[in-house]
């Protein structure tokens, strides 16, 4: 028991003093997760909207694939990305394995199905409300998609935040494709795993606290956006 409190004290010390190893890991982690959230949203949001209101051949298989991806263990996603990026793999020439780029790719693959599923729900609800009115005004499919994306912009922002949270808390896939290289591909989650196994609890705890704060901040942000938009935009 005493050890936990001692570690906690040291952890708060690390955070307060801005310990360089600690700051480096946090910075890399946030940077890569942000990149993955942006990329994953850029692909996942339109994909979700398309599935929500589009009627095209292959829609069903797209839905099934997205759902399957949603349920896939992330280590398996990591393994597949690893195979793709490995020297002998189809994308081996990119030379991305064990680089931050590999992490962003793996995280993006994990973010896309979540963002697409949430966006689909948001856009579908809104489409159910708008469909007749838009058709009555003579709105075609292209403009309908743009109108829905714009009108659900606040909800979609919270969806993107959820994607960021997913990316930041990912560990298995990131470990496999990034290699947990100090100062390059070591992120909060993989650092926690490593430091804990080495017995360096203060650093692990400090990173764990930051991770919790990030997740809290993401949820608080999403909540605030929802409240604000409901009050000001209905």
């Amino acid at each position: 028991m005493f050890e936990i409190f001692a570690s906690l004290g040291l952890a708060l010390d690390l955070m307060a003093n801005g310990d360089s190893a600690f700051v480096r890991v946090v910075a890399i982690s946030l940077e890569l997760s942000l990149a993955a959230a942006v990329l994953g949203s850029a692909i996942g949001l339109p994909l979700g909207a398309l599935v929500a209101i589009g009627r095209f051949p292959g829609r069903r298989s797209l839905i099934v694939s997205l759902n399957a991806l949603l349920g896939l263990p992330s280590v398996v996603v990591g393994l597949v990305v690893y195979l793709m990026l490995s020297r002998a793999g189809p994308l081996g020439t990119w030379g991305l394995l064990f680089t931050p780029g590999a992490i962003v790719i793996a995280q993006t693959v994990l973010v896309i199905p979540i963002v697409a599923a949430l966006a689909r729900q948001v856009v579908e609800d809104s489409w159910n409300e708008y469909a007749e009115q838009l058709r009555s005004l003579g709105v075609g499919t292209g403009r309908a998609v743009r109108t829905l994306l714009w009108d659900t912009r606040f909800s979609l922002l919270t969806v993107a935040l959820a994607g960021f949270g997913r990316a930041a808390s990912e560990v298995g896939a990131v470990m496999i494709v990034g290699g947990n290289i100090d100062g390059v591909t070591r992120v909060m989650t993989t650092a926690i795993a490593l430091e804990t196994s080495k017995g360096d609890l203060p650093l692990a705890l400090a990173l764990g606290i930051v991770l919790i704060l990030v997740v809290l901040a993401v949820n608080a942000g999403a909540y605030a956006i929802r409240e604000w938009s409901a009050k000001h935009h209905g």
């Binding site: 007749e132 009555s136 709105v139 009108d151 659900t152 935009h233």
Partner: peptide, 26 residues
């Protein structure tokens, strides 16, 4: 032709922008 429904469906933008939207579509 135009139609007004029992429950008006308003877009998430200003009142004026809602009217402009209908005109823009046309």
């Amino acid at each position: 032709q135009a139609m007004v429904f029992q429950r008006p469906v308003m877009l998430r933008r200003s009142a004026l922008a809602n009217v402009e939207y209908g005109l823009a579509v046309n």
